[in-house]
Structure formats: structure tokens, C-alpha cells
Amino acid sequence: MEVERDKLREQIMRQAQGALSMSIAYIGIVNRLFAHLADADSVSPKWLAQKTGMNTDYVARWCDAAYAFEYLEQPVENIFGLTPLGHAFLDDQPGNLISFAVQSMLSAHMAERAAGLMRTGECPGEKILNEWETILPWFGPMLEHMFGPLLKNEIIDRVPAFSEVDAQGGTIIDLGCGNGWYLRAIIGSYPKLRGIGLDGIGENIDQAVKAAEREGLTNRLTFAVGDIYNFHVDEPANLIAMNRSLHHVWDQKKKIFTILRDHLCPGGSVVIWEPNWPLEYENLRIPDRRALAFQNLSEHVLGNHFLHADEIVAELKAVGLKPEVFSIAGGRDVVITGTRSK
């Protein structure tokens, strides 16, 4: 029994070390410490503090911790440079690891809030996201790094609605567009498409506009702060996308699905991408599904919950849209299209 306890203790200690490493990485990301280290090669904590506008003592202690977790090397005393692992947290690196650090910190905050709210039953809602001023600017980039590769590798070419709309030179509306990563990827793949992105958070829209400018897409992309319950477009859309946002408004599903149908042109489609809450409860024990269960607890803090694919299909049918289901990411996620008859 004592040997077994020692093994369990070692296992938990390794997991705790991983959480600590993500905390150190998060600080380096949001304060641009990694970025400035990459630009300057090897620097002192004092120089790094001056370049970033941070307190020298805090930066020095962060350098110690980043060195301990092998993000930094120290070629000479009190001079630091990035290791290959540190380079992996630069936002201009393909396949970077930023999302892991941001998600880890967000999860810790949500766990703390859930621990307290569990005593009262309160669900504060989406406003809770504004509590964390260092996380909010990185929320969109986190989603982009986490799900952008999945969109490009498993969804864009597989879901025919995108190419069909592109052939018409049509318009796609993204409701809850975040920093615009989804629309930018779709527009970048289909040269005839035009896009409109709406989101309720101004920070997200600012990021979306700047990213579209960097990528030279402003002639085909428009972003604005908008309300999913009350938006207006000049003409019906060829495609309306809801990217991992439907569960946020599920309590108003009858209204939402009516709005979606009424804003589609004949033959147009809604494309809904959602986490896929499993019908078989034991599937939550599958290692790559465990995070889904924690995320669903976090969603409860926001007043939401993840959905079964069958629930979405039923609502599409109820408003006269023809559904088609695409299982992605090994079944962890699902894309469901609903097409309006011509």
C-alpha cells in the first residue's frame, strides 16, 4: 500500500510540475517576454524589463523560473536567451504552444470560480470572462491556435457548403466570430467568398480587423460588434456559421434557429461547429475526452452546457432545414450543416 501511495504521489507531482510550467509560460506570453527575448537573442533581466515596461525585480524572478523550467538558457551569468522550448511559445511560430498555456491559466481561474459558486448555485454568465484582463486579449488567439489546424485539416475541404457558396461568389456570416480566425481561414481558402463577422466583445472585433488588414483580406471581410438576436444584413446570406458558440445561446434555441433560417437565402446553409458531448457516458474516461468534462463544468459557470449532436439535428429539422452531420477530431467535435430548400 505504501509503495502504491508513493507512485500516486509521484504521478501527482509530475502533473503539478506541468501546471507550474504552464503558469510561467503564460506570464512570458502575455507580457511579451518571450517575443523580446527572441528579438534580442540574449539579454539581462534589466534590459528585458526596460523593453517590456515591466518591473525589474519581477522580470528577474520570472527569468529564474523560466530557466528552471527550461524555457531559458543562461550562456553567461545573468544573461538569458530562449531555448527551443521557449521558442515554441512565440505567436509567429507555426504549431506554437501558446494555447496550452492560456488554456491552463483560464482553467485554473474557472476552477477557482466553480469551487466558490458550487456553494451558491450561481451561474454568473459570459460577463465572467471580463474579470481576467490579461486573459481576454489572448482568448481569440488561444482558440485560433487550438482549432485552426482542425478547421484546415478536417473541415474546410470536407464540408461541401463552403465550396458551393464560393462557386456562387456568396456571403458567409460568422456569428460570434471572436478574433475572426475562422472567417479568415475560410476566406483564405475560397477566393470568391465574402465574409461578415459579428461578435459582442469589442476587443475581439479590434483583433479581427487588425488581423484581416495584416493578411490583406479587408476587401472581402467586414467585422463589427453585433448581437446574434438582432442583426441585419442587406440580403439573405448564403452561409451562416456558428463556430463553437451555439451552446452559449442554447437557452434561446427556438428563437436562434428561427433567426438562422430566416437569414438564409434559398439553398443556403447554416454550418454549426460544436464540442460533441458523448451519448455514452463512459466515453468521458477516454484520455482525449477528459478535458471535455472539465470544460463542461466551466461552461456551467457561464450558464451553458455542451450538446449532443442529436439535439442540434432536431432543432434544424424543426425549422425546416435539412441536416448533415460530420464527425471530426475522432468524435470529440461535430460539424452539422442545415440547408434551406431552394
Rank of each mutant, 00 (worst) to 15 (best):
Ala291Pro: 01
Met54Phe: 07
Ile29Asn: 03
Arg340Val: 14
Glu122Gly: 05
Ile173Cys: 02
Ala49Gly: 12
Met105Ile: 05
Gly303Asn: 03
Asp262Tyr: 11
Ser107Thr: 06
Gly320Phe: 15
Glu133Leu: 13
Asn219Met: 13
Asp64Leu: 07
Asp64Phe: 04
His232Lys: 09
Ala161Asn: 04
Ala49Tyr: 07
Ala161Gly: 03
Asp57Cys: 10
Ala35His: 05
Trp277Glu: 07
His232Val: 01
Gly176Cys: 09
Ile79Gly: 00
Ile128Leu: 15
His248Gly: 05
Leu316Ser: 07
Ala309Met: 12
Thr83Ile: 15
Ser163Glu: 05
Gly216Phe: 09
Gly125Cys: 11
Asn204Arg: 01
Gly148Thr: 04
Ala293Tyr: 13
Ala167Thr: 12
Ala208Pro: 02
Asn230Pro: 01
Val335Glu: 10
Ala161Met: 06
Ile24Cys: 08
Leu217His: 08
Phe100Val: 04
Val233Trp: 11
Ala115Phe: 10
Val159Ser: 08
Glu10Gly: 05
Pro160His: 06
Asp288Leu: 06
Gly331Cys: 09
Pro236Gln: 11
Gly268Asp: 14
Tyr190Met: 03
Val225His: 00
Trp62Phe: 10
Leu82Thr: 05
Glu274Met: 14
Ile12Ala: 07
Trp47Ile: 13
Phe34Glu: 02
Trp277Ile: 10
His87Ser: 06
Ile259Tyr: 01
Gly18Asp: 03
Gln103Gly: 05
Val209Ile: 14
Gly188Asn: 01
Pro275Lys: 13
Trp138Asn: 00
Arg261Leu: 10
Asn78Glu: 15
Leu90Trp: 05
Leu292Gly: 15
Ile228Thr: 06
Ser298Trp: 09
Ala211Trp: 03
Pro94His: 11
Glu280Leu: 12
Ala35Ile: 02
Val313Ala: 15
Glu126Val: 05
Leu143Ile: 13
Phe223Met: 00
Thr52Val: 11
Asn238Pro: 03
His308Thr: 01
Leu264Trp: 08
Phe139His: 08
Phe326Leu: 10
Glu315Met: 15
His300Val: 01
Asp199Pro: 02
Ala88Leu: 07
Phe326Ser: 12
Val43Gln: 12
Glu274Asp: 15
His247Gln: 09
Met22Ala: 13
Arg113His: 09
Leu316Cys: 15
Val233Pro: 09
